[in-house]
Nucleic acid binder design. Structure first.
Lengths: 342, 342
DNA sequence: CTGTTAGCGCATTCAA
DNA sequence: TTGAATGCGCTAACAG
């Protein structure tokens, strides 16, 4: 009890009351002025602004939210290390601001679980949450959805309490497979996303497309990170069998990892093996040779998610406004794919 | 006034009082139990927990902070698109949690300025802020530092109101230059960080090291992103003069961009040109050929920053605890550097 | 146009 | 061990 209470708050921040006192007006008036609400004389408005600036006054967002009974906050759970999520966040900020909402970010890291990330969002009294590529169980997501408007991004879940915004993964993988088949490839391997969100759908899309072409699907276990793509290729090489002529990775980082491993093994891309990613992260365009990939529009998905979240907030009645917002992916051909030479 | 007020808060969240009523006890009792404070009978404790769970009660962090007079919040401003910042954030979460503080993230994006990002942190009543690689003017940073404990990460600023945690950039570039010179290179170009934080110091480190070896420095304008490295190489190629034998990029993404441009131009790395980055982002190890780079320990810097921030919060007296926390960088040799062949 | 009053959800006295 | 009152900083009614 002696060390603990050494940690008291620093110099008290200036409050609305401080400004009011200093300016010689009521707190209500200061409140009006700070919010830009009408009902204050120009003279007073001017004076309040001046004093506020002098005192370095910044409104306390918590107190404001507490009083207003609403936070105007959109909570966003995302994975820090996922480059694609960064693109999504940019879009979310933009769309939220345009709609008059603030954004609270809650990151998932190696040492910070999705549960924890969502928990802080709830404690912050967000009015809705956008969960980017959650790996949590359907049950837990549903429970969150039962508590407050919830939009799930980049993951398939069907539940009355959850809105989903995602790319048409099956379609995306079909595009990729068609492209490769068009180049003459027949031995096309899919390095999957293991337990990642969307992984199941992409596997299915791959399988379906392959079978449509009368080809035999071959799936090896991967993941969402570089290391997974790299290890998958290593496993493929160690397997002894002859290498596929094309690799379809779960996402761009996974594809990058695969490229890296192929290069280490002295295998030329795209001459000996073609590689396709998924996402079209801004990295894809700069990855040594430009990565051929399936683009999902992060900005568009972000806008859809924000719009959905807000519509859920604003008409709490609106029955089940839920349902999937599906974005159509597009193939972006760059340098990592070429005609089959074998 | 008709459309606006359609947006009222959704179904009211359950509060402490709801739990108290339902459990048939006082709100104070519930508060005790939820905080794990002593002073409640096991029976009551049990009952309160049960009811809280049933009602899905989550304490309101804002109300709590408001009442307590402190938020226990560490604000972090960072740039979403900077891969290195992601590594830092992981470390910050970990260190902050260990110290009993929460973290608020505030991202800088193309459409969201540093001013805005810092502004929300102030409005959230963070007790301290950690600014990761801020590009704002020294004056503005100092003003922030005057308001609340401020730790600046990965940028050089000297000011009585600012604590700085950074890598020894000059030393880092010396390591890189020495490495290249040791491989026989003499025509070493630095693609700089333009106006990025640390860019100035890295230029200086480069220049100093080159002169120490009796070599002529050549600096071309770059930046922190892939595109900058790529454009810098394009400019170099367009320049007509003969190419340098080695390139020292401002950071890893910049180096990746350079690699990409070199490849497009059909120039072999490291046979014709060696490339060195800076940061040792987790991407570096997977970038086609592993990128030789100067490592700055993100986790360590994060821990230092958090420790500094907390120490500033807790002894508001402590005179000037400010001063630089300098981390020693290390060279990580991978595949993009090799002996000079020209 | 301006000031006064009350209360948001919570933690903290102080009494019981 | 428990409960009733008070106020954190702010805004929404209402009164002047």
């Amino acid at each position: 009890m002696t060390i603990e209470d050494a940690g008291t708050a620093p110099t008290r921040r200036t409050t609305l009351a401080d400004v009011a006192r200093q300016a010689g007006v009521s707190t209500a008036l200061v409140s009006l002025v700070m919010r830009g609400a009408p009902g204050a004389s120009p003279a007073n408005r001017e004076k309040v602004f001046r004093v506020a600036r002098e005192l370095g006054y910044v409104p306390d967002s918590r107190a404001r939210a507490l009083r207003q009974g609403r936070s105007q906050l959109l909570g966003v759970m995302f994975h820090v290390q996922q480059t694609f999520h960064a693109d999504v966040i940019e879009g979310i900020y933009e769309a939220a601001e345009a709609a008059g909402y603030d954004v609270v970010l809650s990151a998932v890291t190696d040492s910070r679980s999705e549960d924890k990330a969502i928990g802080t969002l709830l404690a912050d009294r967000c009015e809705a949450v956008i969960l980017v590529a959650p790996t949590s169980s359907r049950e837990w997501l549903a429970e969150v959805g039962g508590r407050l408007p919830t939009v799930v991004l980049v993951r398939h879940v069907r539940h009355p309490d959850l809105s989903v915004v995602r790319a048409a993964d099956v379609k995306g993988l079909a595009l990729a497979v068609d492209h490769l088949v068009g180049l003459g490839h027949t031995r096309i391997v899919h390095i999957d996303g293991a337990g990642s969100p969307s992984a199941e759908q992409r596997r299915r899309g791959y399988r379906t497309a392959m079978e449509r072409h009368g080809l035999t699907p071959q799936i090896v276990r991967g993941g969402w990170a570089e290391i997974n793509g790299s290890q998958a290729v290593d496993a493929l090489l160690a397997g002894g069998g002859d290498l596929p002529t094309a690799i379809l990775a779960f996402n761009d980082p996974c594809a990058m990892g695969a490229l890296s491993a192929l290069h280490r093994a002295g295998i030329a891309v795209p001459d000996e093996v073609s590689v396709v990613g998924f996402d079209d992260t801004h990295l894809a365009g700069f990855s040594h040779i430009g990565l051929t990939t399936v683009r999902q529009d992060a900005g568009l998905m972000a806008r859809l998610a924000v719009a959905r979240a807000i519509s859920l907030i604003e008409r709490s009645n609106g029955a089940d406004e839920h349902g999937d917002g599906v974005v159509v992916p597009a193939l972006v051909v760059r340098g990592t794919t070429g005609p089959c030479r074998r």
